[in-house]
């Protein structure tokens, strides 16, 4: 933004005048009001010139045609939308320079390796617990406390901020604003699951849909929509304690969860995918978890290498 740009208040007033003039021709009295507004200062004149330039650029577009082009379907915009949010998906080692922000504002880049967790206290006293294979960036400025979740799963406990700055987690699908809270985000293949442990958060998707979630609720959002809130379970946050708690879940789901904490390839054969599993598993030692599963279920573990394991029917 230029330093000689008119103050925001005057720009807002210019926008308002533009709307009024477009709505209907000004009365004589209104015109006088406008003139005295316009003549107040150089800033007023400049703001009005900006508004007129903008208005002219719209008038140069033939009606009907421009709207058809600009309202092209979301499907046609998919790559662009992905790209616009895509700067967040640069590998974290590269240090992300968000286009509009000076690099020095990035106070930290955090990531965890597969199978590792990390707890980080932020400058305002808020706490982030990062689960396996998670990457995020932190940007705090005078107005906003912002986390960019690049991938993975986090739990955030926000602290009261002396500057009363909002706390926002931004993702490729939209953002979550904490309203004094403990909450979790988990990046799924096609969306983000948010679950709230304390107080409230507000989810806003990239397309502008909004939803409040209360403590004890969870929902999944993608770019365009938010699922209906469902009750969340304590089991959902068991990962914070390094545990996986499942109750009558399919084996394929459990194996998928375990695979998040392991290097290499862990696959579940369709022959045993629908076996039901309940239990509490310790995530720091997934080999033992697999062994225990093999002891209690009619399955066998085929270790081709330590990094290539298939869960299959018994030999």
């Amino acid at each position: 933004m230029n330093s000689d740009c008119p103050p925001n208040k005057i720009i807002t007033e210019a926008a308002d005048w533009l709307i009024r003039r477009q709505e209907s021709p000004l009365t004589k009295q209104e015109q006088e009001q406008f003139d005295s507004w316009h003549d107040q200062s150089k800033d007023h004149q400049k703001a009005w010139r900006m508004a007129q330039t903008l208005s002219r650029s719209f008038q140069s577009v033939p009606s009907g045609l421009g709207n058809t082009v600009l309202k092209r379907s979301q499907k046609d915009r998919r790559q662009l939308i992905k790209l616009l949010s895509g700067l967040l998906v640069v590998p974290v080692t590269g240090v992300i320079a968000f286009k509009t922000l000076p690099v020095s504002n990035w106070t930290a880049d955090l990531s965890t390796a597969t199978g590792k967790q990390k707890t980080q206290i932020l400058a305002d006293g808020s706490r982030i617990i990062m689960n396996t294979h998670t990457a995020l960036n932190i940007l705090f400025d005078d107005h906003l406390r912002q986390i960019y979740l690049i991938e993975g799963q986090i739990q955030i406990s926000t602290a009261k901020d002396s500057l009363s700055r909002p706390f926002i987690v931004t993702t490729q699908y939209g953002q979550v604003e904490a309203l004094g809270t403990v909450f979790q985000l988990n990046q799924l293949s096609d969306g983000i699951e948010v679950s709230v442990q304390q107080d409230t958060v507000e989810v806003t998707t990239l397309s502008g849909e909004k939803q409040l979630l209360q403590a004890g609720q969870k929902a999944v959002f993608s770019q365009y929509d938010i699922s209906h809130p469902k009750p969340s379970h304590t089991a959902d946050s068991a990962w914070v304690e390094g545990q996986l708690i499942v109750d009558d879940e399919k084996l394929s789901h459990v194996i998928h969860e375990i695979s998040r904490y392991r290097h290499g390839w862990l696959r579940c054969s369709p022959d045993v995918a629908n076996l039901k599993v309940s239990g509490v598993f310790q995530l720091h030692d997934t080999d033992t978890v697999l062994k225990n599963l093999a002891n209690t279920l009619p399955i066998s573990l085929v270790y081709r290498t330590p990094y290539w394991v298939t869960v299959d029917k018994p030999n």
């Binding site: 082009v69 600009l70 092209r72 046609d76 915009r77 790559q79 662009l80 790209l83 616009l84 895509g86 700067l87 640069v90 590269g94 240090v95 992300i96 320079a97 286009k99 690099v103």
Partner: peptide, 24 residues
């Protein structure tokens, strides 16, 4: 300081313009 971050920042801006123009 971070050549790849710098390159991708510049390239990303160009890429967004390119895709937008092409679509439009």
């Amino acid at each position: 300081k971070e050549p790849r971050a710098y390159l991708t920042t510049v390239a990303h801006g160009l890429m967004v313009n390119h895709v937008r123009r092409r679509d439009i």
